[in-house]
């Protein structure tokens, strides 16, 4: 799937560049893309280190196990063979819910690692479910959007909180349903 997405995006974009006679620009555009991955990784490095460190403190204090016990039942409905991934998955969803995107990503990666038990290079049902859940942004307060609305002179920047919350819930429910259905195909 990703091989087609990647290939088609790259080819269609490159052909358009070349058709416009912008070959040199295409090269610099390709490099900018790769460069931005490096810059992004460096920006993320600090927050990964911080959150992985704090997560390990929580682990050694027994809090992660406690959280896992608490959420085992509800989360196993969605991800039946999650096992050790329950705790980081719960932390990831909680961080997303409270709008802490930077904290959510390391927990999400930890979840994927724990889910990756057979190391076959093939996504499991649970992995797909976890990713689908992450693609519907259920968030308590969409703070970034509210800030942008305020900056753009909105008279009621908070007006969108309820519709945003309901809409993201709809997206999450559809994500779960789509995953369960597609997994059977």
């Amino acid at each position: 799937m990703m091989m087609w997405v990647f290939g088609l995006m790259l080819i269609s974009g490159s052909v358009l560049f070349l058709a416009d006679g912008r070959g040199a620009e295409l090269m610099s555009c390709l490099l900018t893309g790769a460069d931005s991955a490096v810059t992004l990784s460096l920006t993320l490095a600090g927050s990964y280190i911080l959150w992985m460190g704090l997560l390990n403190i929580a682990k050694e204090a027994g809090l992660v196990d406690g959280l896992a016990r608490l959420l085992k039942k509800p989360l196993s409905l969605l991800m039946p063979s999650a096992g050790e991934a329950i705790a980081p998955a719960a932390l990831n969803l909680a961080a997303n819910f409270f709008g802490l995107g930077n904290a959510a990503t390391p927990f999400g990666i930890e979840t994927m690692k724990k889910l990756n038990t057979d190391k076959s290079g093939r996504a499991t049902d649970d992995m797909c479910m976890f990713i689908a859940l992450n693609s519907s942004a259920v968030e308590l307060l969409p703070t970034t959007v509210i800030a942008i609305r305020t900056a753009c002179g909105s008279a009621a920047p908070q007006d969108i909180i309820l519709p945003t919350f309901v809409s993201s819930l709809v997206a999450a429910v559809v994500a779960v349903a789509a995953c369960k259905l597609l997994a059977k195909l």
């Binding site: 990703m2 990503t105 994927m112 992995m127 990713i131």
Partner: peptide, 18 residues
């Protein structure tokens, strides 16, 4: 990011579902 972290290239129904 998430599939990259565990080296998964066969992403199955994750993308369509998302």
């Amino acid at each position: 990011v998430y599939f990259g972290a565990v080296g998964i290239t066969k992403t199955r129904h994750a993308l369509p579902a998302a």
